[in-house]
Amino acid sequence: MNNTFNYLPQLLLRLALSITMLSAVADRFGFWGENSAWGNWENFEKYTRQLTSFLPESVGGFSAYAATFLEILFPLMLIFGFKTKWAALGTGFLLLIFALSMSVALGVKAPLDYSVWIGSAAAFILAVQSDYKYSVDTLIKKS
């Protein structure tokens, strides 16, 4: 398929991954109200400790902060198309870690229900694209 037809779906994939991840961050800060998984930071930390129960407890607490930082950084990079390949790889690995942790701690159904495997695979597909037309990367390349 001609690369020209690849640009719009690629942009939509960048936005879908970004919005999904930013929505999860908004949830842990209570922005979704009653339609939420966690609703507040304390519940999110408890959930993170559950997912990382096979690690030392100090790592579980740190994981909540690290995940939140990366779930803000990578989506913003994807939205603007800045270092898109690296942001997509980071997103893919982050979601893969989430999927594996969820599988170990909660069973294989949990990451399937939340489409974490799909998100990870989609991010890796985005990472192997040859260029990103609607992006800061393209503007930098042209100058």
Rank of each mutant, 00 (worst) to 15 (best):
R49Y: 05
N2A: 14
E71L: 06
L100Y: 07
A127I: 06
F98G: 02
N2R: 14
L73V: 13
K83F: 01
R14W: 04
S101E: 01
F80M: 00
N43T: 14
M1C: 12
A16G: 05
L51C: 05
A67Y: 00
I72H: 04
F54I: 13
W32A: 15
L106I: 03
G33N: 02
V25G: 01
L11Y: 12
Y47P: 09
V128K: 00
A26N: 11
V59R: 07
S23E: 13
A123W: 02
E71T: 06
L11P: 02
F29I: 11
I97F: 09
Q129K: 12
L106R: 07
Y47W: 15
K141C: 04
N43S: 11
G39F: 07
K133E: 13
S53N: 11
S53Y: 15
Y114A: 05
T4V: 10
M1D: 14
E34N: 14
Q129A: 12
K109T: 10
L15E: 01
L51S: 07
L139K: 11
S23D: 14
P75K: 04
M21N: 01
V104T: 15
K133S: 10
W117S: 04
A66S: 08
M1T: 08
Y132T: 01
Q129D: 01
D27N: 04
S53C: 08
V128G: 01
G92F: 03
Y65F: 10
S130K: 10
K141F: 10
L100S: 03
R49A: 00
S18V: 03
L112K: 08
M77F: 02
M21E: 00
S36D: 08
F5M: 13
V136L: 13
D131I: 00
F31S: 04
L51G: 05
G107L: 12
A66G: 10
Y114I: 11
L76K: 03
T4P: 08
A67Q: 05
D27W: 08
G119K: 00
F31I: 03
T52P: 12
L76Y: 02
L94Q: 02
S103M: 09
T20G: 12
W86M: 03
W32Y: 12
E34H: 14
F93K: 02
N40W: 15
A110F: 07
K46Q: 12
F29C: 05
I19G: 03
A123S: 13
L73G: 00
